[in-house]
Design a protein around this nucleic acid. Structure first.
Lengths: 335, 335
DNA sequence: CCTTTATCTGTTAACGTTTTCATAATAAGC
DNA sequence: GCTTATTATGAAAACGTTAACAGATAAAGG
């Protein structure tokens, strides 16, 4: 494997000169620079990052952490953030992708291994990890969840507003009794969405059919099971708020099987605006979570945190958007 | 930041002893080992990987490469492989995730940066990269695509058999004219699935409606557009083979919009058995690609390639499974 | 042509580990 | 208690790079 010294020997210069030349140090004469460069490319030389990292006290690695890789992380988030990070980072940086839930030892995972950390957080369980990273003084940004603390760069998403807005819409269309299929318990989004759901219904003094508020796990089959349960009730609500689109898709399946028409017999609202929301039948009315925007803002912040020592840590909140499609019936319509 | 020398000073021993103690070298007395260990954990010590890597000539990083992060890589593959790799690897290893399509320089991305490489390949375009890795002598395994070469550990998926099997099933149910929505041109799966489709139909001397063979891009909206195009033909086939489930979902949407019933008026077959295939209406008949099995076999191989110098490189082929659901009509039925 | 300054290059140490080799301390054998 | 064998520890070098400092060469000024 070619090192800086191999090149030095061939070029008849010292390895220091080679180092300088390859790093574009203007002190080295242009002619020798070219000669060295030529030899380097011929040998397919590429610097040893361990050595470089040792002296520069850098690792050339950014850690990207999700609450969990297996469960609950939307694909789009994964790919969106990975792509953006790669584009934003210098080519010499690597991206290490991890799930916080299968980290055995924070020391090993973080300390003297990473130059910066991006966390896409779904759960309060991540707080311990976030705190650890912060304490170790690494550049850090947390995406998705709104943190309580303000000493961390943070881009959150407004789950509450999204849910509330969607429920207001349902109320406006004349719905009076509601049910909900809830998300994974440990996810903060689940409790926030539930709270917004409850708050809005109560505010309007409308009814929640408590038997029609059932747990789910953010995947289609849990939505399916939950909806079956709801549809077997002696009487069911006019609208079910599903805490995400995948569960809404499962719920829809249950409706089809039991010959309950959507939206004629029951209305459905989802959350996320997944790619499939528009393609199911009926197209799903849902709350769009602009992952692209979240990622963009977050990685802009990360850039600041990494490169601008003057940067004042900030917290931003990204707003949802109600996407009206065909899964909610207008009960006020006079037909 | 605590180093081995910090610990040495506190413990009143040489840094060499600390190194040995922490690495479980039996030469060091148990009592001193414990003393050192205690100090280390108190300081939250964690070894500097650059330094260790420099002397051991290791990087403690495994590269995971997809043809592209943004497009065409199924989520399940991403999460499945990441999860499995993490579980299989020693805790000290990191996982660097990349898209081959946005690699600017193979040297920088690979050389003296990685201890091993896992490629999930969709396209022949990856061959150059695969070749580069192989030439540099890194432990390598390629998943998903069946390679021509046999000097690389390889687990491929049998797209041909899957498609053929599904088409045979359609023929058995009495279908006589066929159309297809194709995948991304540069993906090898696209051409293989097309070939199998053509081969099977021709073998049975049945008809392909050439206007009903339209290009797609493996996403739902391309399936939607393609199906619209097909349904506008003066006459359409009895069955459309969609090169993946997402496009089938889009196609289904088009059918709904144009009041073409599935499977009564037209039959649909997908590919992949995505999570959603079972949840759309009608549930999609499709070909299951067992990503779990592919990953498992592949990472078993990777383990061998990494750790067993005796290992004989091998090529394995994973078989598909036809999943019969409700989107194909039985034309032989006498009702 | 000699001195001064500017430009370029080399020597050396350092980063935090592991490893080889030597040596000090202890235990065993008589 | 003295030699030998065993066990535990330390000193020094090495990995490939960068950086501080010094030194050499070339250009400029008189």
């Amino acid at each position: 494997m070619a090192t800086i010294k191999t090149i030095a020997k061939i070029a008849g210069v010292s390895h220091t000169t080679v180092s300088r030349a390859l790093n574009g140090n203007p002190a080295v004469k242009e002619k020798t620079r070219q000669k060295i460069q030529k030899i380097a490319t011929e040998l397919g030389y590429s610097p040893n990052l361990s050595a470089r990292g040792l002296v520069n006290n850098k690792t050339y690695t950014i850690g990207l952490f999700f609450s969990s890789i297996q469960t609950g992380t939307s694909t789009s988030f994964l790919t969106e953030v990975i792509t953006r990070l790669h584009n934003a980072l210098d080519k010499e940086y690597m991206l290490s992708v991890n799930g916080i839930d299968d980290l055995s030892n924070y020391n090993i995972a973080v300390k003297s291994r990473l130059d910066g950390v991006v966390v896409v957080s779904q759960s309060q369980n991540d707080d311990e990890f976030i705190d650890f990273v912060k304490k170790n003084g690494l550049p850090l940004v947390v995406l998705n969840r709104l943190l309580q603390r303000h000493d961390v760069a943070n881009v959150g998403f407004d789950d509450y507003a999204g849910t509330y807005q969607a429920m207001e819409y349902a109320v406006r269309l004349g719905h009076k009794t509601f049910g909900m299929i809830e998300g994974i318990d440990s996810f903060e989004s689940s409790s926030i969405r539930r709270k917004a759901f409850l708050d809005c219904v109560n505010k309007h003094h409308l009814n929640i059919l408590s038997d029609a508020v059932v747990p789910g796990t953010y995947d289609a089959s849990s939505g399916y099971r939950a909806m079956k349960q709801i549809l077997l009730l002696p009487e069911f609500p006019t609208l079910i708020f599903c805490a995400n689109d995948d569960m809404a898709i499962g719920a829809l399946k249950a409706c089809h099987e039991l010959n309950v028409r959507v939206p004629e017999d029951i209305s459905l609202i989802g959350f996320d605006d997944s790619v499939y929301a528009a393609f199911i039948n009926p197209a799903l009315t849902t709350i769009r979570k602009p992952i692209d925007k979240l990622s963009e803002l977050g990685l802009q912040m990360f850039d600041q945190v990494m490169n601008n020592p003057e940067y004042q840590l900030e917290t931003k909140l990204v707003s949802p958007e109600l996407i009206i499609r065909d899964s909610v019936k207008n009960l006020n319509a006079t037909d």
